[in-house]
Nucleic acid binder design. Structure first.
Length: 413
DNA sequence: GGCCGTTAA
DNA sequence: TAGTTTAACGGCC
């Protein structure tokens, strides 16, 4: 049987629907099986399966219990959540379409009609829509992508070029909402409530205009957008008419609940492939299913998780577009051909320490906790850390404290 | 407190 | 031949 982790990966992405999923999965499986990477994925998969088994055992006990008092607690929580619903804001989530790939197409129009991806033999960052027809997608190694699509053109990433486009779209966003928040190079949230109060335009018209300006300023790049009353819904909506489209969700409870009813849980940001598997095991596939199972979720999982899914199921999200989390850590990591000799590993550590010193200086950052992660040839990760009584930032300190951790694990095999 | 796992882009 | 990098959070012991 095909590993869930390796096979059913990423097929929900736009552009992939409709192609022969079986064929793609089989090809990836045939190329991967036997590899150490694949074995490690199988181990991780088995751990998830075991975790699900435990949850199901608990679920089967709990569902027979009298949950009337639980039910009351959940009901009260839902009432509380209904009370905090806010329909006063107009939030937009903008997402550039196949960002890196579109920029490369713009700069080399011959690529437009050909399957193409940005990245290298090791890893692809993104694929154009032509390539997605073959199952080529981001987070797929280039050499596997080539087997899916032998004509695939792989273009190396040019970070500075993409950064330039990011600055261009930021300038556009600032005109509509000075508090706009970039969540990555190609994604942003805007609160256009204030702008709308002054402009004589509908939200759809404003967003249409933003997307036109993006296209004009960037030489024809397209973006998709979602418009809704909060960030969660705006993000979900920006995916609905991708690529080069926008979707506006009406600002009322009924419209929100209708959208959520049949929405696949995987579309909720924060629910990834593992959580999806877990919830699927409880017969939960859509946010509608989720709404009907909140009592059991409250019983079986932590309150934090219950709270998270309850909010998501009701379509309740933040409106604080400008909120930025304070940086808590800074790290650097490299994957390299297996090294065994302690001296070689220490040399690597020295290189990483120098690299991190530069980054720390650039951001004027320091830390009092250091952790070292080793990736074994089996792909298993080992992380060990320690608190330091002072704040450090120099390559020498990073190396010396890191070396203590590293040496404790030498020799590696 | 320390480590592992999940998620996202 | 070959399966990334960075950052944050939750769960568990």
């Amino acid at each position: 049987a095909l590993s869930n982790r390796l096979g059913g990966l990423g097929m929900h992405k736009k552009g992939l629907q409709g192609l022969d999923k079986e064929e793609v999965n089989k090809m990836i499986y045939e190329t991967s099986k036997g590899s150490k990477f694949f074995k490690n994925e199988a181990i991780k998969d088995a751990a998830v399966t075991a975790r699900i088994k435990k949850i199901l055992e608990n679920y089967n006990i709990v569902k027979k219990l009298d949950l009337s008092s639980e039910s009351a607690i959940v009901k009260a929580k839902l009432k509380e959540l209904e009370n905090i619903r806010d329909f006063t804001q107009t939030i937009v989530h903008i997402d550039m379409d196949a960002f890196y790939a579109s920029i490369e197409e713009r700069d080399n129009p011959e690529l437009r009609t050909k399957p193409m991806a940005v990245g290298d033999e090791m890893m692809l960052a993104t694929a154009n829509y032509e390539a997605r027809k073959y199952g080529v997608r981001s987070a797929l190694p280039g050499y596997i992508a080539r087997r899916l699509c032998p004509q695939l053109i792989i273009v190396p990433a040019s970070g500075e070029k993409y950064g330039l486009v990011t600055s261009q779209i930021q300038e556009i966003f600032s005109h509509y909402d000075s508090t706009f928040n970039m969540t990555s190079m190609d994604e942003a949230y805007l609160n256009i409530t204030k702008y709308l109060s002054k402009a004589e335009q509908t939200p759809d018209e404003v967003v249409q205009e933003i997307r036109q300006e993006i296209s004009k300023k960037t030489g024809g790049l397209t973006a998709s957008a979602g418009i809704a009353c909060n960030m969660l819904l705006a993000k979900i909506c920006s995916d609905l008419n991708k690529p080069n489209g926008q979707y506006k969700l009406e600002n009322d409870r009924q419209s929100v609940m209708e959208l959520m009813k049949d929405l696949n849980i995987r579309k909720i940001p924060g629910i990834g492939r593992v959580t999806e598997r877990i919830l699927n095991a409880l017969d939960i596939n859509t946010c509608g299913d989720l709404q009907g199972k909140l009592v059991i979720i409250h019983q079986v999982f932590t309150y934090t998780f219950f709270n998270f899914v309850a909010r998501a199921a009701l379509g309740i999200g933040s409106i604080d577009v400008a909120f930025k989390m304070k940086r808590k850590s800074m790290s650097v990591s490299r994957t390299f051909a297996a090294l065994h000799k302690p001296a070689d590993l220490r040399k690597k550590l020295r290189e990483l320490a120098k690299h991190l010193e530069k980054d720390l200086a650039k951001h004027n950052f320091e830390g009092c906790h250091i952790s070292l992660t080793l990736k074994m040839t089996s792909f298993k990760l080992l992380t060990r850390g320690r608190l330091i009584k002072k704040f450090i930032y120099s390559a020498d300190d990073l190396y010396n404290y890191g070396k203590v951790i590293l040496d404790a694990h030498l020799p590696l095999n």
